[in-house]
């Protein structure tokens, strides 16, 4: 099993993602600088980590989405490789067009950092299979622009196709339909605002995030 974590200038959860994957799955993790034009051979999981790529200047994720490595990430998505974008990584995936919708300024206008309860809306994806039988999981959020937006038609389609994967029990940021995480129509690209990379050991308050990495790699 092999995973890659992409490092953009301003990523700040890249090390956390590596630790989380290593400790929860034992997989080998390669750190890939955003200027690379190739990904490690035979990679089974690509993670776009949280942080403030390019300082979140202009728009969150906008400039990172144009990084050289993103062409490879898109190609990997086309080949069906599992891709997870967490927080800023979710924003990058939306900006890159790999996921529908966008993340806009939180309804409360403030950055919000707190533990959140999540409904696992769809436990049949390759990322959430390990949550079968779990109605609720706990992770933390930390974002200022985590308010998921998509037009009504897109939201209907996402709901209808089971692409809404996680939903906040209590909406921390005004996200449309309490959406915390979505997958693409093919089911191999996941974006979520809560941090599984901060919830991989009981000491951190929750180990629920480990299951996500385990599922993603088990499905490869």
């Amino acid at each position: 099993m092999k995973a890659a974590v992409v490092v953009f200038p301003g990523s700040n959860c890249d090390r956390d993602c590596r630790t989380a994957i290593e400790r929860s799955t034992g997989a080998e993790v390669a750190m890939v600088w955003h200027k690379e034009t190739t990904l490690p051979e035979g990679v089974d999981l690509i993670v776009l980590p949280g942080g403030f790529s390019y300082g979140d200047y202009l728009r969150c994720g906008a400039m990172a989405a144009l990084s050289p490595v993103m062409a490879e990430v898109k190609a990997a998505a086309g080949r069906g490789v599992a891709i997870v974008g967490i927080c800023n990584g979710f924003q990058i995936l939306c900006e890159a067009g790999l996921l529908p919708g966008a993340l806009i300024r939180n309804e409360g206008l403030k950055y919000v950092c707190k533990p959140v309860a999540l409904e696992v809306t769809n436990a049949q994806t390759r990322f959430t299979a390990g949550y079968a039988g779990r109605r609720q999981v706990t992770m933390t959020v930390g974002n200022g622009e985590g308010n998921y937006y998509a037009d009504e038609a897109t939201l209907e389609r996402l709901e209808g196709e089971g692409q809404v994967v996680f939903r906040y029990v209590q909406n921390p940021n005004g996200s449309a339909r309490r959406i915390a995480g979505v997958v693409n129509d093919r089911g191999n690209v996941l974006g979520l605002m809560p941090h599984p990379d901060r919830a991989f050991e009981p000491e951190l308050g929750s180990a629920d995030g480990a299951i996500l990495f385990q599922s993603a790699l088990a499905s490869a």
Binding site: N12, C13, R15, D16, T19, A20, G50, K110, Y111, V112, C113, K114, T140, G142, H195, D197, R198, F200, E203, L204
Partner: peptide, 18 residues
């Protein structure tokens, strides 16, 4: 105040203001 601060990045926080 502290809900506006990222208290968990680096994934090593055991106790914080919360």
């Amino acid at each position: 105040i502290w809900e506006q601060y990222d208290r968990h990045v680096m994934a090593d926080t055991l106790e914080d203001s919360a």
